[in-house]
Computed example of a mutant assay.
Amino acid sequence: MELNDSELATLRNRFKKNAEFLLQTTTTGDEDEKSHEEKDFKPLPRVNRHTVFWIMASVGVTYYVDFFRNIIENDDIKSWWFNVGLALLGVCLILATFCIVYLEWVKGIQHYDLEYPAIPPLATAAFIAASCSFNIALWPVWAFFTPLILFTQFMGVVMFISLLG
């Protein structure tokens, strides 16, 4: 079946009108939904099941694997990697303190990532390198459980800090 030029033009115009109609209804619908969502927006409570779960899991792992005693007394830990991990974690904490305390509280800069765009990637890289270093350092102690233990500890600390802020 071949269409002549006038039929093609008619078909094209029909699709164009339908497309314009659909675009108009979706944009006005999105605006209505956004304003409705903005009206109903309620921040999540600080204490929820997710937060409690990670904090309790972190406490349980700390107790079960005797975390601090192993860190202090275990001779199997690769101390060089552990010290590198501590230094990199210190870099992360210094950057976080700089952003939160100095930039946000003292200078009042809310979007410090726009003012100092190098900070987020630098902190991310330092944290990833620190977690790799800690995994290497503690692998002789807990073997393949090491990443799970460290991730659980990390999530517990993050959730605990979220309760403070």
Rank of each mutant, 00 (worst) to 15 (best):
residue 29 G to C: 10
residue 156 G to R: 00
residue 28 T to G: 05
residue 147 P to W: 07
residue 48 N to F: 06
residue 59 V to L: 06
residue 134 F to Y: 05
residue 70 N to P: 09
residue 83 N to W: 12
residue 132 C to V: 15
residue 63 Y to G: 09
residue 163 L to P: 02
residue 84 V to S: 10
residue 22 L to M: 12
residue 85 G to D: 02
residue 30 D to K: 10
residue 164 L to E: 03
residue 50 H to T: 13
residue 63 Y to M: 13
residue 82 F to M: 06
residue 74 N to A: 08
residue 93 L to D: 03
residue 109 I to T: 04
residue 60 G to V: 10
residue 41 F to Y: 07
residue 11 L to R: 10
residue 141 V to Y: 01
residue 109 I to M: 02
residue 113 D to P: 01
residue 156 G to S: 05
residue 16 K to N: 13
residue 68 F to A: 14
residue 25 T to A: 08
residue 39 K to C: 06
residue 143 A to I: 15
residue 152 T to D: 02
residue 2 E to T: 08
residue 153 Q to N: 09
residue 161 I to W: 15
residue 116 Y to F: 13
residue 118 A to M: 07
residue 82 F to G: 02
residue 155 M to C: 14
residue 134 F to G: 01
residue 1 M to T: 10
residue 52 V to R: 00
residue 164 L to F: 12
residue 58 S to C: 14
residue 40 D to Q: 09
residue 136 I to R: 06
residue 153 Q to A: 06
residue 111 H to P: 08
residue 35 S to C: 15
residue 128 I to C: 08
residue 59 V to W: 00
residue 3 L to M: 12
residue 98 F to Y: 13
residue 35 S to I: 15
residue 11 L to A: 14
residue 131 S to D: 09
residue 46 R to N: 02
residue 40 D to N: 15
residue 148 L to D: 03
residue 90 G to V: 15
residue 54 W to C: 00
residue 126 A to P: 02
residue 31 E to D: 09
residue 71 I to P: 03
residue 50 H to A: 07
residue 55 I to R: 00
residue 38 E to Q: 08
residue 165 G to V: 13
residue 38 E to F: 12
residue 45 P to A: 07
